[in-house]
Design a protein around this nucleic acid. Sequence first.
DNA 1: AATAACTTTCTTTTT
DNA 2: GAAAGTTATT
Length: 757
Amino acid sequence: MRQFALPLDENPSDAESIIQGLNPAQQEAVRATDGPVMIIAGPGSRKARPYQILALTFTNKAAREMKVRVEKLIGAEEAKGMWLGTFHATFARLLRREADNLGYTSDFSIYDTDDSERMLRGLMERYHIDPKQFRPRAIRNLISSAKNQLVTPNDYARMAATPVQERAATLFGPYEQALRKANAMDFDDLLLKPIDLFMQHPTVLQKYQERWSYLHIDEYQDTNHAQYTLAKKLAARHKNLCVVGDDAQSIYAFRGADIGNILSFQRDYPNASVVRLEQNYRSTKKILRLADSIIKKNQDQLEKDLWTDNHEGEHVVLMEALSEKDEAQKIERTIRDLNVRAGYGYRDFAVLYRTNAQSRSLEDALRRGNIPYRVIGGQSFYQRKEIKDVLAYLRLIVNPSDAAGLRRVINYPTRGIGNKTQETIFDFAQREGLTAWQAIERLEDIGLPGRATHAVEKFRFMIAKYAAKSTSAPADELARELIIEAGILGDLRKENTQEGLMRWENVQELISAIAEFAAASGESGTLSMFLQEVSLLTDADNDYDDNNRVTLMTMHASKGLEFPVVFVAGLEEGLFPLAQSVQDPKELEEERRLFYVGATRAEQHLYLSYARSRFRYGEQQSGIRSRFLDEVDPEVVRMESGAALKTKSDRFKTKGGHSFSYDRVDPHYYRTSLRPSTTRGRTRTVSTNKAENERRLVYDEGEGEIVPGIRVEHAQFGEGKVLSMEGRGEQTKAVIFFEGVGQKKLMLRFARLQVLG
DNA sequence: AATAACTTTCTTTTT
DNA sequence: GAAAGTTATT
């Protein structure tokens, strides 16, 4: 295996011309194959970079693209020796090989967020933690981010300060034990366990350091601490680490990505060469100028000066709409128009938005206009309930310890094993120190009533039968039989609805996928491998199609892609930026980077749009346009009519010269509906809702109680100390410092604070 | 224990 | 306006 320097994007001669454009020091760095390299790439740069032996990316799609290029470069044969893929998939593969070093079997299950939550729910019951008061989701997120920071349960218990954190600390250890007992890994484990492995078995680390003597990481700005540690360990011996990233496109802080990794690369690797690729090959000058004006508002970033040789281009167009329906219609008409008059194919368009929920109205409009489209993300194939149910059965067959899988299917379709029976079984397992499945194997000792025993017995027999077959029979046949015997087929058919039919078709599709996998990977394609692989797939990765369709997706999903025509929809305060994000400058900056990512997907035309009102929460609610539109360079933007973009000062001049500030806007403006809905209004007045009464209490009577220095509790942020107060009446806000969270400015009206004294 | 009918809550983004 | 939780009925 040789490492190879360079070239990169579509064709090597391109690469050569890019390199020619760099200064001599940069040229040398890019050509160098040895030593650490950091490449800072802007959006739309062609990335001249060394492809090396282990290449890690963030999406399967990026990995696939990389593979295509590498094969072109060095031939398919040699490319086979490379490991190319996402962090999670790559280390899942590694773990499969090394599982026994860690006390797992290679058939371990991979738990998604759902499974993790299911485990936590079970534990919460045992520890008498009320899932309504402390959401399993919130606790999972806390544990997940702790794991990503390499914080152990013991450390975390010491650090926990708020009530939620304390519960998370209580559950953290038991959760880890439960996973291990279930022979299962959650997403975070796929990165953590390899670190454990490398620490406990230095020879194993050495083996991989030799195998991957050259290491390449794309989208480095999105690595979290665990990924950083893995890279550091693997590169420690040869120091041949090449990272590529753009701090301005860091949009995954919420799942632990740490921009610090890219900002401090030079400190970690003092002799690193740094290359800046500042030429943009994608967008027009106007689009680039708009993007530049967005990102300039952010404070922390590496210096970068983007430029392009491309045309000046058309103005960026801002579309104003009355409602989200109207917005969708305008987008639909614009697509039609450009398609007919300018000859753009449907595949040339992308409509981007902040939240998946926004796709609905857009889909409606496109469907009505007979414009073909595809939606990426949202509910992907493998996220669907019926698919997860079948997968859970298969997981259970391969790995009977799989507790989350068992919980999922033990009574689906209903077979008379209700909550009570399940609890009895789990309690028994807990008491005897068994896995749930081991408890079921000792069913006779549990002492269930006769009818329940009989029901469980049948279930046990069925699972055991398929487990025995799982090594011999072809995987797809096994799945097909199981689906019928378990009664999933019957359950879906019984529904007798359009939806039931669709679900049934999905299940069929899953079986085909299993068959395909088995056929493609031959002898080595076991069911357990299929299950592991599939749990890491996302819709955005496998929706690979060359059909001529408009693409709908979130801005997050759009990273790394480009389209001739791009729409960024829903530029409204509270939606983009999201209400939760505006209180924290760090989060607001991330939203801004997201806007930057969205805008820089466009090659030739960029449309921005917002709606004056939007259907949310089952009500029509009014909004104001996003602050981002006030930050943008007005020179490059035109309204649909061709008029200039009205700036903030233009728009608010009429109000007697008062300066306008978004800080004075209720960030949850969406909650104030246009006209009070009667049903809601009525229930409100007689509401016995606890949270509502508490809120009123604090706001009406308690306002005076909240003064600087006092301690309060917030449902999400936990315990904090009030630093200062501002505003009066409904506008009263408090600046509060929350441990482990930071400083927040909250409106008392919405914060639901509880006074602790 | 299962189902139907009703009520409440909640929405960021994702490997 | 969906999903999850609650209550009433069989």
